[in-house]
Simulated scan of single mutants.
Amino acid sequence: MKYSNAKNVLPEKLIIEIQQYVQGETIYIPKQEKEFHHWGSLSGGRQWLDQRNAAIRYAFRNGSSIEQLAEDYSLSMETIKKMVYSKNK
Score class of each variant (00 low, 15 high):
residue 2 K to A: 08
residue 47 Q to C: 11
residue 67 E to A: 15
residue 47 Q to E: 15
residue 82 K to F: 00
residue 19 Q to H: 14
residue 14 L to P: 00
residue 15 I to H: 11
residue 17 E to W: 06
residue 49 L to T: 15
residue 74 S to M: 06
residue 72 D to S: 06
residue 60 F to R: 05
residue 49 L to K: 15
residue 32 Q to N: 03
residue 40 G to H: 08
residue 14 L to V: 10
residue 21 Y to C: 12
residue 38 H to Y: 10
residue 38 H to K: 12
residue 56 I to L: 06
residue 57 R to E: 06
residue 77 M to L: 04
residue 47 Q to I: 15
residue 10 L to H: 05
residue 10 L to F: 14
residue 38 H to I: 07
residue 15 I to Y: 08
residue 40 G to P: 05
residue 52 R to N: 14
residue 11 P to S: 06
residue 21 Y to P: 08
residue 29 I to R: 03
residue 3 Y to I: 12
residue 28 Y to C: 11
residue 2 K to P: 02
residue 69 L to N: 07
residue 24 G to A: 04
residue 52 R to M: 12
residue 35 E to Q: 04
residue 55 A to P: 01
residue 62 N to A: 01
residue 43 S to G: 12
residue 42 L to E: 15
residue 41 S to H: 08
residue 26 T to H: 05
residue 63 G to F: 02
residue 81 K to D: 01
residue 87 K to E: 07
residue 46 R to A: 15
residue 60 F to W: 10
residue 6 A to F: 09
residue 57 R to A: 12
residue 16 I to H: 14
residue 14 L to G: 00
residue 78 E to D: 12
residue 82 K to L: 07
residue 64 S to D: 07
residue 74 S to F: 09
residue 34 K to D: 03
residue 69 L to Q: 07
residue 18 I to L: 12
residue 50 D to S: 14
residue 88 N to L: 03
residue 82 K to T: 09
residue 76 S to D: 09
residue 38 H to A: 14
residue 12 E to V: 15
residue 63 G to W: 04
residue 44 G to A: 12
residue 12 E to N: 14
residue 19 Q to V: 01
residue 9 V to A: 04
residue 40 G to Y: 09
residue 9 V to L: 05
residue 38 H to E: 12
residue 89 K to T: 00
residue 5 N to E: 08
residue 56 I to N: 10
residue 10 L to Q: 05
residue 45 G to H: 11
residue 65 S to I: 02
residue 86 S to C: 10
residue 16 I to W: 02
residue 87 K to Y: 01
residue 59 A to R: 14
residue 39 W to N: 11
residue 8 N to L: 06
residue 57 R to S: 06
residue 87 K to R: 01
residue 64 S to L: 04
residue 83 M to K: 12
residue 7 K to E: 13
residue 37 H to Q: 11
residue 51 Q to A: 14
residue 81 K to E: 10
residue 57 R to P: 00
residue 8 N to C: 02
residue 58 Y to P: 00
residue 70 A to R: 11
residue 86 S to N: 12
residue 4 S to R: 13
residue 87 K to H: 01
residue 57 R to D: 00
residue 73 Y to R: 05
residue 65 S to K: 03
residue 46 R to Y: 12
residue 32 Q to S: 03
residue 58 Y to M: 07
residue 38 H to F: 08
residue 6 A to N: 07
residue 78 E to Q: 10
residue 27 I to Y: 07
residue 4 S to M: 13
residue 11 P to Y: 11
residue 9 V to Y: 04
residue 77 M to W: 00
residue 70 A to S: 15
residue 14 L to Q: 10
residue 82 K to C: 03
residue 39 W to L: 15
residue 3 Y to Q: 08
residue 80 I to V: 11
residue 30 P to A: 04
residue 44 G to R: 11
residue 12 E to L: 15
residue 45 G to L: 13
residue 31 K to F: 01
residue 19 Q to I: 00
residue 72 D to R: 07
residue 35 E to K: 01
residue 65 S to E: 09
residue 29 I to K: 03
residue 33 E to I: 13
residue 50 D to M: 14
residue 23 Q to L: 06
residue 76 S to F: 04
residue 5 N to S: 09
residue 25 E to I: 05
residue 48 W to Y: 15
residue 72 D to N: 08
residue 88 N to E: 11
residue 50 D to P: 00
residue 5 N to Y: 09
residue 31 K to M: 04
residue 2 K to E: 05
residue 14 L to Y: 10
residue 40 G to A: 09
residue 34 K to H: 07
residue 87 K to D: 05
residue 40 G to R: 06
residue 11 P to R: 14
residue 61 R to G: 11
residue 70 A to G: 15
residue 3 Y to G: 02
residue 20 Q to D: 05
residue 25 E to D: 09
residue 58 Y to L: 10
residue 87 K to N: 06
